[in-house]
Design a protein around this nucleic acid. Structure first.
Lengths: 164, 164
DNA sequence: CTGGCTGCAAAGCATTTGCATGACA
DNA sequence: TGTCATGCAAATGCTTTGCAGCCAG
């Protein structure tokens, strides 16, 4: 971390994490909880922010190891838990055996289309859907705390690939 | 299975499984696949059919053991897999660490309200919801294969219990 | 008879935890 | 200078699998 403006590595097409509000938020969260800011936690957050929108703990662990091979997976899991607690990450089950994480700070609720061929994940939001859900919940006298709609199928690209 | 109209055991308030089409379906499925009909498989299916609508593999295992303590959990898992394959059971993740199973034969698709206090599960169906989902999928060029909407919250009863 | 089935124990696998060492505040 | 964090390895907990003997067809 000495060079400034270091050339982006081959194939890294992700968002830079410079000045992201998540960093400040995380450090504040740590302070508030009497926890400590460490190089590992910073590295894990940074790697998470610069990753694709949806990532598994395992994949994040591998990415982190590329930058610092000494980091253990326990630390990644523990940090991911912290990130989830303070709203920077959101965890979800997509049907495989992994827990997936997505960036959750400052993002409105949304649902997911999951391609069973390529594993690709498409986010979508429908206010109509939200309204009807709220109505269903109300009708049953529930107090809603969370909800998750997942739709599995074959995406446009994979349908084409199949046809050919 | 000798006595007819045998008195229901104390506390068992479940549906009798006599003459349920699932049995015939299961036996046909086994035959078609060249698999064998065994006492354990019959017992597990019967116990499943007489259980509450939603049950975990673990709970089913315990219920089966009450009737025949010699049954191993591997057999329960293996049978549950068969039942799922032939559409008698449907598996789902409700947010805890267990796989839950519900009776799936001859039942239309539906969604779930899950109470985070008592663990109770309420089924609901909304054609509007289905329509909007289909529209979203269409708009994204997906071919839908499955979908699952889960809503977590506090049910009416638990809200009252809390208030008091 | 013979291939499938069973129960047991062991293995798998993602995730969590215990512990001795190391680092932040 | 005392927590809190880390990395390692072991433990968890649900689920699956290997295997030797057993049973249905």
């Amino acid at each position: 971390m000495v060079e400034r403006k270091k050339a982006s590595r081959a194939g890294v097409t992700t968002t830079p994490s410079e000045g992201r509000p998540e960093k400040r938020l995380f450090h504040e969260y740590l302070r508030r909880k009497g926890l400590k800011r460490t190089a590992q936690r910073d590295l894990i957050l940074e790697t998470f922010l610069e990753s694709e929108k949806h990532i598994t703990s395992e994949a994040l662990y591998r990415k982190v190891r590329e930058r610092d091979p000494s980091v253990g997976f326990a630390t990644v899991y523990r940090t991911l838990k912290l990130l989830t607690e303070c709203g920077i990450a959101r965890s979800m089950q997509l049907g495989d055996r992994y827990t997936h994480y997505e960036q959750g700070f400052d993002k409105q609720h949304h649902d997911h289309l999951i391609c069973i061929e390529c594993g690709g994940i498409t986010e979508f939001f429908s206010q109509q859907l939200e309204n009807i859900q709220a109505e269903v919940v109300r009708r049953h006298g529930f107090r809603m705390v969370d909800h998750s709609l997942r739709i599995w199928g074959v995406c446009r690209m994979c349908q084409r690939r199949r046809a050919s």
